[in-house]
Measured scan of single mutants.
Amino acid sequence: MISLIAALAVDRVIGMENAMPWNLPADLAWFKRNTLNKPVIMGRHTWESIGRPLPGRKNIILSSQPGTDDRVTWVKSVDEAIAACGDVPEIMVIGGGRVYEQFLPKAQKLYLTHIDAEVEGDTHFPDYEPDDWESVFSEFHDADAQNSHSYCFEILERR
Rank of each mutant, 00 (worst) to 15 (best):
V136G: 11
R159L: 13
V10W: 01
D132R: 13
E48Y: 12
D11H: 02
R52E: 06
K58N: 13
S49K: 01
S77L: 15
H149V: 12
V93N: 01
D116S: 14
K32R: 03
L62Y: 02
P39F: 12
M42W: 01
N18G: 04
L4Y: 15
F140M: 13
S150P: 04
D122M: 01
T68A: 11
A6Q: 01
E154C: 15
D132C: 08
V72A: 13
E129T: 10
L156W: 13
H45C: 03
N23R: 06
V75R: 10
E90W: 04
R158V: 08
L28E: 00
S148I: 01
E157Q: 11
E48L: 13
W47Y: 15
N18S: 07
T73L: 11
N37M: 12
R71W: 07
E139K: 08
G97C: 02
Y128S: 07
D70I: 07
R52I: 11
D127K: 14
Q108L: 08
S148Y: 00
K106I: 10
D69P: 10
I155M: 08
R159Y: 12
N37H: 06
G97Y: 01
S138W: 06
V78I: 04
G97Q: 08
V72S: 11
L36R: 11
A26M: 02
F153H: 04
S77H: 10
N23E: 06
K109E: 05
D132A: 08
Q108W: 08
I41V: 15
T123W: 01
I115V: 06
R98K: 06
W47M: 15
A9I: 10
K106P: 06
P126M: 14
V13C: 03
T73F: 04
E80P: 05
Q65A: 07
L62K: 02
P55F: 11
I61G: 03
A29P: 00
P25Q: 02
E139I: 07
I5S: 00
R159K: 10
E120W: 13
A145Q: 06
A19V: 02
Y151P: 02
D116F: 15
K106N: 13
E120A: 04
P66A: 06
C85K: 06
D79P: 07
V75M: 09
D87A: 06
S49T: 09
H114I: 14
C152L: 12
H124A: 13
V40R: 00
I14P: 00
N59E: 07
R12K: 15
I5Y: 01
P126T: 14
I61K: 00
P126D: 15
T68K: 08
S64I: 11
G51E: 14
K109M: 06
T46L: 00
S150L: 03
G67P: 14
Y111C: 15
T68R: 06
L24F: 08
S77M: 14
W133H: 05
D11S: 05
P126F: 02
V78P: 14
G121V: 01
D79I: 07
T123F: 00
P39Y: 12
G121R: 00
A9S: 13
V119F: 00
D142G: 11
W133V: 02
C152M: 14
F153S: 05
A145V: 07
S64Y: 06
Y100L: 02
D122E: 02
V75L: 12
E90D: 09
G43L: 01
T73A: 05
K58Y: 05
D131Y: 12
E134P: 12
S135M: 09
S64Q: 14
V40F: 14
S3N: 13
G56M: 06
E80H: 14
R52W: 08
G51R: 07
S77Y: 15
A143N: 06
N37I: 04
Q146S: 08
L24D: 13
A9Y: 02
G67V: 13
W74D: 03
E154T: 15
A19Q: 07
S135A: 03
Q108Y: 07
E120G: 13
T73W: 11
Q65T: 10
S77K: 14
I155W: 12
I94N: 00
P89L: 08
V13Q: 02
E129H: 14
H114C: 14
E157I: 04
H124S: 13
P39H: 15
V10D: 03
W47H: 14
E101S: 07
I94Q: 04
F125P: 02
D70H: 12
V88F: 14
D142M: 10
M92C: 15
D116Y: 15
A84S: 09
D11C: 03
S64D: 05
D132M: 06
G56E: 07
V40P: 00
A6L: 03
A6M: 12
D131Q: 03
H124G: 14
I94G: 01
H141D: 02
A143I: 06
V13K: 01
R12G: 01
A84G: 04
S49Q: 02
R158D: 04
E17N: 04
R33N: 09
H45G: 09
A19S: 06
G97T: 04
H45K: 02
E17A: 04
K58M: 06
W133T: 00
N147S: 09
D70F: 08
Y151E: 03
R98Q: 01
H114A: 15
Y111R: 00
W22F: 09
E157Y: 05
S64R: 11
T68V: 08
A26Q: 03
G121S: 01
R57V: 00
L156N: 06
G56C: 05
P89Y: 07
D144W: 07
D122N: 00
A9N: 15
S150H: 05
S148T: 12
N59I: 14
R52T: 11
D79R: 05
V75W: 11
R98M: 02
L62H: 09
M92R: 01
R12Q: 13
D142E: 10
I91N: 07
S135Q: 15
P126L: 04
E157T: 06
H114Y: 12
S135L: 14
I41S: 02
R71D: 10
H45V: 01
D127T: 13
N34S: 09
P53R: 09
L156S: 14
F153A: 04
V136Q: 08
W74M: 11
I60T: 04
S49A: 07
Q102K: 08
A19W: 08
D122A: 00
F137Q: 10
W133K: 01
I155V: 06
L156E: 04
R159D: 13
P55H: 09
T68C: 13
K106E: 11
R33W: 04
